[in-house]
Each structure stands twice: as structure tokens, then as C-alpha cells.
Amino acid sequence: MPDSILVLAAHPDDEVLGCGGTIARHVAAGDQVHVAILAQGLYSRGEPTAEQVSGLHAAAERANGLLGVSSLSLFDYPDNSMDTVARLAVTQTIEQLVTEHRPRTVYSHWIGDVNIDHRRIHEAVVAACRPQPGHPVESLLFFEVASSTEWQPPGSAPAFQPNWFVDIAATLDTKLAALAAYQAELRDWPHPRSLRGVEHLARWRGSTIGCEAAEAFVLGRHLRPGV
């Protein structure tokens, strides 16, 4: 029976950087993948024009179309300023998405990222996915985002130490094609948020577990349901 999967990302491209290959695997397996991008993604660079906003939304639609997601929700929380938003508001937004999609698995950001939006969303996800009776979420998985997770100095926040890996050898090309849709967000090699940098990370994560390419996660919680 197909699963319902919910991916909660801060900015357009985070969903692809963090778990694009895994999303494509879920889709290939027949699962329904729902992606929600919570922050606007442009305000930290100055007041965006309508053309810039529509261009970024179009890029998100193209990227997630390539991944084959069932739905894409774009919100307008302030970019790189989610610490100015009441956590309850973000938590309630996520709770509404959980109620709508009834996901068994949720993917989102790691708490130790440099980016403040990533950290606030992580906290809201944990709050919204409290393991209460009847709650649909059985697995919480937190991904890494190149140019945020690895840039946190040791001791400044919890280190990303993955204990859950997904083999994406068959979907790495799809991940990279989806990432290429976010051309304005990419940087030149050797920046970690370049196509080459993202591929190197996937190859490295794969080599650590004996496969061609992988995405790495920290398992927050997994419930093995009763029979």
C-alpha cells in the first residue's frame, strides 16, 4: 500500500538538497510525496520584485515536477528571519499539513544548521509531530543541507551524525536535474551548493555505506506499528 510522505523545507532548493534522491525513490515506489516550502527565500537579499518571486516559484514547480511529487505548497514566512515569527504559528502550519496529508514519514531540517530558518522549522516539526495517540507520523528523519549543515563550527550546535541512509544511486541523476532547475540558487564549484559539490557529497555518503550514492539522515524517531 502506498505511503504518504511529507517533506518540510525552509527554502526553495532545500527539499532537493536534503532529500531529492529519496523523494524520487518514494515516487518510484508509488508513494504520495507532499512537499511544503515554508519561507519565501528572497527577502534576505532585499525587497524582491514580483518577477523574482514568480521566477523562484516556477523553479520550485519545475524541480518538484521532475521529482514527481504529488503536491507542492509554497508559504511566505520571512526568509532568514523565522526567529521573528511565533513558533506556535509555524507549528500550527505544520499541524495543518499533517492533518491534510496524514504522512507516515516526515523529512525536515537538522537542528544544528547555520541557517536560522532551518533550526526554527526543525523545532516546529518536533512540536507538531509529538507522538500522541492516533498521530499518523511514525518516522521523523532530519536531512543535511549543503552550505548550512557542514558550516556549523564544532561545539556551536549538535553535530550532524547520520544513522540512517538511503541508497540513491538510481535517482541521483534525477536529484541533480531537479537541483539544476534552481539555477539562480546554485554556485560554482568548489562551493558545496554546486552540482558538482552535491554529487560529491552523495558519492561520499554512498561510499561510507558501500553503495554508489546515498543521502544521509538523522533518525529522530521511528515507531514500528503494532499488527
Rank of each mutant, 00 (worst) to 15 (best):
A60V: 00
D113Q: 02
A146S: 10
A29F: 07
Y182C: 13
S194R: 11
E144T: 09
R187E: 08
D173V: 12
R221S: 09
A59G: 03
A9E: 01
G21M: 11
S4E: 05
S207P: 04
S70W: 01
T149G: 00
D31V: 06
E150A: 08
A24V: 04
A39M: 10
Q152P: 02
D117P: 12
K175W: 07
P133Y: 08
F160N: 04
R203Q: 10
G210A: 10
P162Q: 03
T49W: 07
A124W: 01
Q52R: 10
Y107D: 00
P225N: 10
I111V: 13
F75K: 10
Q96C: 06
T99S: 14
A9P: 01
A63L: 02
A202K: 12
R25V: 00
E123Q: 14
S148A: 15
S207A: 13
W110Y: 09
D113T: 08
D76L: 02
V85G: 01
P190S: 14
F160D: 02
A169S: 15
P133W: 11
H26E: 08
P192H: 11
S194F: 15
S108N: 01
S70D: 11
A184I: 08
V218R: 00
W189D: 13
I5Y: 00
Y107P: 00
G210C: 09
L219R: 15
A28E: 15
A170G: 09
A214L: 10
D188I: 12
A184F: 05
D79E: 13
T208Y: 10
C129H: 08
W110M: 12
L201D: 04
G46Y: 11
T105N: 04
Q152V: 04
P12G: 03
P154M: 05
Q32Y: 08
G46A: 08
H118V: 07
R130M: 13
F165L: 13
C129N: 10
R203L: 14
R102L: 11
P12C: 15
R104L: 09
A157M: 01
A202L: 12
E15Q: 09
A58Q: 14
E212C: 03
E199L: 11
L8M: 03
S70A: 15
M1W: 01
A63V: 04
L195W: 10
